[in-house]
Design a protein around this nucleic acid. Sequence first.
DNA 1: CCGTCATATGACATCGATCTCATATGATAT
DNA 2: ATATCATATGAGATCGATGTCATATGACGG
Lengths: 113, 113
Amino acid sequence: MKATRSGKAKMPSDLVLARTASLFSAFANGGRLKAVVALMRHGPMSVTGLIEVCGLEQSALSHQLRVLRDGSLVVAERRGKQVVYALADDHIASILEDGIHHAREQSRKGDAT
Amino acid sequence: MKATRSGKAKMPSDLVLARTASLFSAFANGGRLKAVVALMRHGPMSVTGLIEVCGLEQSALSHQLRVLRDGSLVVAERRGKQVVYALADDHIASILEDGIHHAREQSRKGDAT
DNA sequence: CCGTCATATGACATCGATCTCATATGATAT
DNA sequence: ATATCATATGAGATCGATGTCATATGACGG
């Protein structure tokens, strides 16, 4: 993965651009990110599990999970009393990892905020 | 680039997670995305050029460019009266293209919103 | 049926993002 | 020095995002 010369890329339609923006919006929050990363690490998890990992309140997390569902980043499945969440697809994980990687590089480059 | 098994990934620190969230935040807007895509297509451009391409008002675009600069997504260089913007690095373009690609796939899968 | 666990939802407050308008700054030419 | 072009900035309005509290729903055990 290196084919990233800046000079060339096809101009996406406004619709695609809007969808892209909302995809990234879904990633634009620490709590949501933490949840998605948790799903990447542990695989499918119940809400209760996510609450512990993310350190968010039940209601807050539930709202965030809704955002993730609406953005099709995750899928939910009932398992008795619980609801188990999982990543919607691997591309999601790929994009997030790429973002995390970039953030790490920035840190190493001394981009101290 | 395919190594996207969901099961394994290292848990990033909260700092990295926060940085990642703010990276994605910078991408979480149609106007900003349009500007970045323009820079990918045409290479470095002046603000005036970006105004035309993005269809934003001067002031609004300037504010957005500030967000992009603050997030280190783009860099600015004075060129006489003008200021020329360019992508900060190729990784930025890579991440964005990946996001656009995902958005396109979603559309094809009939994820009509 | 009732109580309880697990999760979702709605209303509301608050905080942040984005836009607009007016104005400031910086560079160049006259 | 002044005018003008190109861009940035600040203040304020408005809209959306996030969190909290209270309550609803859904599943299961007794």
